[in-house]
Amino acid sequence: MTWVAWRQQRFQVLLSIGIVAVLAAVMAFVRFDALSLGGNEALIDERYGTYLNYLRLVLIALPVLLGMFAGAPLFAREIEHGTHVFGLTQSIGRTRWWATKIAVAGIPVVIAMTVLGLVNAWSSAPLQAVMFGGRLATPTFEIQGLTLGAYTLLTFTLSAAIGLLMRNTLAAMVVTVVVYIPLLGAVANALRPGYGTPITSRYQDIPRDAWVVESSYVDAAGNQVSFSPAGCTASINDCLTAGGVVQQVAYQPDDRFWSFQAIEAGLFAVLAVALLGVGAWALHRRLRLA
């Protein structure tokens, strides 16, 4: 079955790996070129500001694109063409047919995207100074480290499961996009700030590249107060001092980057396993082939 699945999927697998390889090559070049600028932030920003904008765009879209193109047609197109009847009336079991197809189509692209995320983390290190908000903030967190592979795993298993349930490639793609984008936003805003207990400090004391997750105004006693800079005629700091008010922030320090990456990747991996379960259920209970 492995050969059959590979023969069916090879174009899509090789194309995905090709795209990833080109991007990885660009990233490697960027790293060495940026290092040659000797840490001159103005120069780095001038040369790579636009690159970073496009890179964010491409790398946010890539997991859903590659995951979906691998997963959505995997079963849905077979059902559309009736070829699943061929596969399932040979001497191999239904589970093996399903698992082999999942493995052959999914594993290469998930590994490739994970490698790409690691390459980008390595490549972006010299550019970090010009990236707004540090590595933990959206969208920098999403495009490097382990997340790229984890997001691809999710979109792949999601579109494969939906393809089995809805038996329609296009519908599987639409559902994947419709579920994935809000999911990513919800995780970044609702869950990620809580991956670790935030550190509280005065606004002036937050370290470089920290990710500010909460901000409030407190008086000398530490009670929260409301403060509006609207009626302030002097500088905001002067007004704050005059009112005895301090801006207090909660932040996640940059050195939590890899543990946050691991937590987020783990979260998406758990979701992916659940989706595989849905797919297995659909395979045995719902796949009516009349």
Partner: peptide
């Protein structure tokens, strides 16, 4: 099967 399913490619 009726539609003689074979992999077209």
């Amino acid at each position: 099967a009726q539609d003689k399913p074979l992999y077209k490619g």
